[in-house]
Design a protein around this nucleic acid. Structure first.
Lengths: 231, 231
DNA sequence: GCAAATTAATGATTTATTCAAG
DNA sequence: CTTGAATAAATCATTAATTTGC
């Protein structure tokens, strides 16, 4: 019911950046032909001005969530669809089905590319955004873990045999016990370093260099390798 | 010295979205003329291909950080500048100066718009990305807090008078004691809900509706109100 | 004086918590 | 009470300081 007006702020993205490693891809300034001083589009400020109409309070409308705040930067320019989004995402059964399938498949923290793919795919079953996918995986992972922990705790307090515990905890109690199905195995203590603006290696031209993995549209959404170890 | 190849993947952003509140702005799929099935650009996979040369191990090169993974989505398309970024951002004294000034000014968690502005500004003093700004504030805030906590702890253990403690903790010990300068005051327990892809209020047309705050390029970078409570 | 070895800072990620919509 | 959304705390990994042996 809302009716966001918005209109672009000319927030062009960054000129892309390196590729693999987690080197600084350069977001807004950096590279680009013009060194600063050329904000590109133009920047307005346009303050929030009473956004929503039916809100219990005036909250929500300022900053933005951790990740969000960063990424959003670019887009905006010709937003021409009210999108409809009223409140929070409500995953459809189909979407959940797919997400859980991916999770069971071993996917834990999809990278932006994967998120993009998944969002694209799930978009067929209903409105969804990348952040929803992102959050879903975060929450699901965390809650599965906590569920397992509780279960283990219970088991432990019941049987007291503590024989099946892989003894792989870190500080408080059993921890890190999932490792769902495949993946992992070699990266014992090396999670860090994802990247920021780069997910794919490199292209060369700006044309649709496309396909390099599988297809170019649906792409292997499910076969996606668990973690992202794309190499 | 590196020499990232990269080159865009045509990850256009999302069609922007609502505005104020934290309603789902729609990231990749959703709105847009085409419902899924049109990944736009094209997607490649091109694996990391030996990024860094001087690395003790083969780590770093897979997915990407929390926020990152989300935002990065778009950009890429005509990356034509090696950017230079080798590894992590190394703030120049000038950049730090500005950041600290903003911090002291009360800014704690800038929204994407602000980050964009700051990045733009700091870009004049050296390479920098939005994520750097974002991280800087996160880390600085956290470390200032922890520094203060430690100090207070020390004070407390020394004087034992505990008379000046505002008794505003939450669970473990003194906490939330900053509130730098202005802002805050009314929002006692309401941090949540920032937004995601929207920062500016609304426009209406796609043209440069620009200016609404101050100017349009340098913009009041420093006078920026502390938190973002732009209303 | 300088370069390898340590240590201190701090940038970047991940995990844990909290809040609140449905 | 479940779970999407958001923030803070804890960690990890690099880079800059600083120390130490030559």
């Amino acid at each position: 019911m809302r009716l966001h007006h918005f209109h672009g702020v000319a927030y062009f993205d960054k000129p892309a950046s390196p590729s693999p490693s987690s080197s600084p891809p350069s977001i807004s300034s950096s590279s680009l032909s013009s060194s600063a001083t050329t904000p590109l589009g133009a920047l307005h400020c346009l303050r929030p001005l009473a956004p929503k109409i039916s809100f219990p309070e005036a909250r929500k409308m300022v900053v933005l969530p951790e990740f969000a705040r960063v990424r959003n930067a670019a887009r905006l320019l010709h937003c021409t669809v009210p999108a409809s989004g009223t409140t929070r995402w409500n995953p459809s059964p189909d979407q959940i089905k797919v997400l859980e399938m991916l999770y069971r498949g071993g996917m834990r923290t999809p990278n932006s590319f994967q998120i993009e793919q998944i969002t694209e795919e799930l978009g067929k079953y209903g409105r969804i955004e990348g952040k929803n996918v992102f959050y879903w995986f975060q929450n699901h992972k965390a809650r599965e873990r906590q569920k397992q922990k509780r279960a283990a705790l219970l088991t432990l307090s019941t049987t007291t045999t503590l024989s099946s515990l892989p003894a792989a905890e870190t500080k408080d109690g059993l921890r890190k016990k999932e490792e769902a199905s495949s993946e992992d195995a070699s990266s014992r203590k090396r999670r860090r370093c994802r990247t920021w603006g780069d997910v794919h290696g490199d292209v060369t031209t700006t044309t649709e260099v496309v396909a390099d993995c599988t297809d170019d549209v649906t792409l292997e959404l499910f076969p996606l390798r668990p973690q992202g170890k794309a190499n």
